[in-house]
Amino acid sequence: MTSTPLISVRDLRKTYGSGSTAFDALRGIDLDIAEGESLAIVGKSGSGKSTLMHLLALLDRPTSGTITLEGEETSRLGEKSLNRTRNQKFGFVFQQFFLTPSASVLDNVTLPLAIAGVPARERARRGMAALDQLGIADKAGNKANDLSGGQKQRVVISRALINQPRVIFADEPTGNLDSATGSTVEGILFDLNRRHGITLVVVTHDEDLAARCDRSVFVRDGLIVPRHDEEVAA
């Protein structure tokens, strides 16, 4: 890694609650994510991997430690800048699709643009382009509820793509899909990573998915551990 990492994390700690009920979800994480790489954050449930992703995605603030995004220390950013950063630089793919069931596929996909204040006409144009990219442009007028699981996840990926993000955060992106559909969706995500240079951060407990990434980090009890430790523990 020659250039500055896209995201750089130093001694990241996150504690939930206080006093006797305090729970240390992260206990000192150091991590660098390079531009354009695909990184798997692997761990069992309760390991702290989701908390780590939430902090990386600036959805939550750490108790201590620093997250540097493109050389900028994010703890200094105000609420407004954080909102803008998430809106413009990040795309999100969640295990539960989080689609608005009664709204059209196009409206679901263009939600980040609506939040950014893009005019309706341009929203529709870019929305159709994103749907086309994932081969579901014909579903644009359908209600999100009428789609199959695989189609829904494609809609979610289109939504994550629409604002041309630097990073896509994917939280168990294939957890709700059968293996055939799941591998198709994985293929789409890695294709975006390689062909468009979008950094991919995947949170998963699926070893096979992790193996397809450039690099994997293992999280256990709020710390990054070497791989063999994880295997011993498992």
């Binding site: 995605a57 609420e79 407004k80 803008r84 998430r86 989080f98 608005t100 980040p112 939040i115």
Partner: peptide
């Protein structure tokens, strides 16, 4: 709740 959470994750301000 989840829709609001999603929109906030995508950068919608509390005021909006």
């Amino acid at each position: 709740t989840r829709e609001v959470g999603l929109m906030k994750a995508m950068g919608l301000s509390s005021a909006r």
